[in-house]
Nucleic acid binder design. Sequence first.
DNA 1: TTGACGTGAAACCAAAAGGTTTCGTATAAT
DNA 2: ATTATACGAAACCTTTTGGTTTCACGTCAA
Lengths: 136, 136
Amino acid sequence: MSDASPKHDVFQAVADPTRRQLLSLLSDREMPVTVLSGHFPMSRTAVSKHLRILSDAGLVKERKVGRETRYRLQPEPLLELKRWLSYYERFWDNKLMALKHFVEQDTSVASTAVRGSQAEPFSLVAASREEESDRG
Amino acid sequence: MSDASPKHDVFQAVADPTRRQLLSLLSDREMPVTVLSGHFPMSRTAVSKHLRILSDAGLVKERKVGRETRYRLQPEPLLELKRWLSYYERFWDNKLMALKHFVEQDTSVASTAVRGSQAEPFSLVAASREEESDRG
DNA sequence: TTGACGTGAAACCAAAAGGTTTCGTATAAT
DNA sequence: ATTATACGAAACCTTTTGGTTTCACGTCAA
């Protein structure tokens, strides 16, 4: 099975700082549990459980070597995150998208936006979302 | 304050499916709470709490209009996620990185890897993580 | 063989998360 | 003025999460 069907959500797996640090450590090289847990102010068992969650999400893969279990990074599931993120990228670096939003706004909103900002081409993103500042 | 100092972590904010869907809805246009909550099988108050979390993470911004509170997307904090993710991109689309890992392994490990795998150029990543099976 | 090491599973616990209902209050509509 | 709407805050409940300690078991070392 080269599948790695994730039982745990990658979003949730990555939400925990400890687990992110684990991924970071493992990005360098594979490591057994005890070595990993040495980097954290918690019990080995706790780290082991984090690893389990990462494993369920397909983000690490374990492999027995003698009496130790070595974990290594399996970055592929992060592609889901990347794909999700890519949808929102347009909102900060796609000027055409900003323009689309701009023209789709109802007129009063748009005009408020133009009034409220510098109205330069590159402030379209800001403009299309702007019009606060009338809140006190 | 144009700062948006996040009291809630963006990773955690985005970990919940409901909140991701909220962001998705808001990416189109700003919306008041009641309209948003119409899209979910839960109470308005629950949705309101999710919005609070998104707001704390700086991912949405609210604005009172009459008796309603309109929320809109504020995508900038997602850049933190993007930046985090970019570190791992090298592991799935940078062949040189795979090579780096390959040459960093100790020699016996590497030779075992070559024996143990198909030794194609594109299996370098897999190869660099190979090695055991000489036990038992 | 005996003992130390490396680990996961289990039982347990406190705190956080996600949800509900109820309530107060501001605004809009009649 | 009264009623309906939109909302957040509060109190409360249940489930999940992140952690602990204890235990059993396989493996390596003497």
